[in-house]
Amino acid sequence: HMTFVALYDYVASGETDLSFKKGERLQIVNNTEGDWALAHSLTTGRTGYIPSNYVAPSD
């Protein structure tokens, strides 16, 4: 899985969403939902949907 870094803070709007903080590292599990991606946080160990425009690929 590619690793991504959060560009902004995001507060989950539902139970299936994943909250994260700017700078948090995430792995995209499934990116077939258009503007949303299923992601796993390497920081918190949690998995949920995130807005895909809130993250960018990290080196």
Rank of each mutant, 00 (worst) to 15 (best):
V5A: 03
K22V: 07
T43A: 10
A39I: 05
E15A: 11
D59T: 11
S58H: 12
N30A: 14
G14K: 14
S52T: 14
L18G: 02
D17Y: 14
V29P: 06
T47Q: 07
G23M: 02
Y49P: 02
P51H: 04
E24I: 01
N53C: 14
G34D: 07
L38E: 03
G45P: 01
T16S: 13
Y49C: 11
A56M: 11
T43H: 08
V11D: 10
Y10K: 01
N53I: 10
L38Y: 13
N53W: 14
T44K: 02
S19K: 04
L38G: 00
F4I: 05
I28H: 01
G45K: 06
I28V: 08
P57L: 13
D17T: 08
L18H: 02
T47E: 07
I28A: 02
E33K: 12
D17I: 09
W36N: 03
S13F: 10
G48T: 01
R25T: 12
S19H: 04
W36F: 08
V29W: 14
A6Q: 00
D9L: 07
H40G: 02
V55S: 04
L38A: 02
D17V: 07
V5Y: 09
T44G: 02
S19W: 04
S58Y: 14
N30T: 14
G48H: 02
N31G: 14
R25E: 09
Q27P: 00
G48S: 04
A6T: 07
R46K: 12
R46I: 06
A37R: 09
Y10H: 05
K22H: 04
L18N: 03
G14L: 08
A56F: 10
F4C: 09
A12M: 04
N31Y: 15
F4N: 01
A39E: 00
A6C: 09
T16C: 15
K21Q: 10
Y8G: 04
M2N: 10
S13H: 11
Y8E: 08
D9K: 02
Y10F: 08
P51E: 01
T43Q: 08
G48I: 01
F4V: 14
F4R: 04
F4M: 10
G45Y: 04
I28R: 02
G45W: 03
S41A: 02
H1A: 12
T43S: 10
A56S: 10
S13A: 12
A6H: 00
F20L: 06
D35E: 13
N30K: 13
T44R: 02
H40F: 13
A6D: 00
N30C: 15
M2Y: 12
I28D: 00
N30Q: 12
K21S: 10
H1P: 13
T16Q: 13
G48F: 05
D35M: 12
L18M: 14
D59Q: 12
T43K: 09
V5W: 06
N31S: 11
D59C: 14
V5R: 04
Y8M: 10
L7Y: 03
I28P: 01
I50M: 03
A12C: 06
T3G: 06
I50N: 00
G23Q: 01
K21E: 07
N30V: 11
S19G: 08
L18W: 03
R25G: 03
N31T: 12
L7T: 06
I28T: 02
A39L: 01
F4Q: 03
N30E: 12
F20Q: 00
Q27T: 11
G14M: 08
T44H: 02
S13D: 08
F4S: 04
P57A: 11
G23C: 07
L38R: 04
T3M: 11
V29D: 06
T43F: 06
F4Y: 13
